[in-house]
Amino acid sequence: MWEIRFSGFGGQGIVRCALITGKACSLYDDKFSTMTQSFGPEARGGACSSQLLVSDERIAYPYVTVPGVLIALSQEAYAKYEPELGDGGILIIEEELVKPTGDANRVRLFPVPATRFAEELGNRLFANLVVLGFFSAITKAVSADAMKKALPGLVPDRFLKVNMQAFDKGYDYGLKALEAEGKGSGASS
């Protein structure tokens, strides 16, 4: 069972990230997944969060209890949700937007320059797809193939191709980061 929290500020496509991943897991990886999101004033700017559970069995309790993965795309989201991340959990951050302040040895930290990569592809709006590619490579919670199949309908048709590129860019970078972690040093760019 994967317990994943996507977080950031409103407008970053946090909910969209969880939707794409949830759709990929449940429709194309043949797993059960449940996605919930915070609604209301909380969801308008400020810390925005979405929760995703992925399991081989039917999911009853629909919320994360101790997340094994936290994706934090803003400092505020990091501050709010880092403490709940389980020991040894995977922490993915946008490296230009989040400066980690917690115990570096408690969790497995994976920074990604998603915004910069996205800008290289033409628009910083593609940053969330870079993050998703990165996340997929690091966690293997979902297959890259399933993620790509999940994109149509959830990203605008005219940006499908460039979103795929953003995903691949993040994915490749994630594989390198994993390799670097195996060699005992963090990914650096």
């Binding site: 969880a18 939707l19 949830g22 759709k23 449940s26 429709l27 059960f32 997944s33 449940t34 996605m35 919930t36 999101q37 609604f39 999911i59 629909p62």
Partner: peptide, 10 residues
């Protein structure tokens, strides 16, 4: 309820 209404699943 709001939870089921806004919850995404297959």
């Amino acid at each position: 309820d709001e939870t089921v209404g806004h919850m995404h699943e297959k």
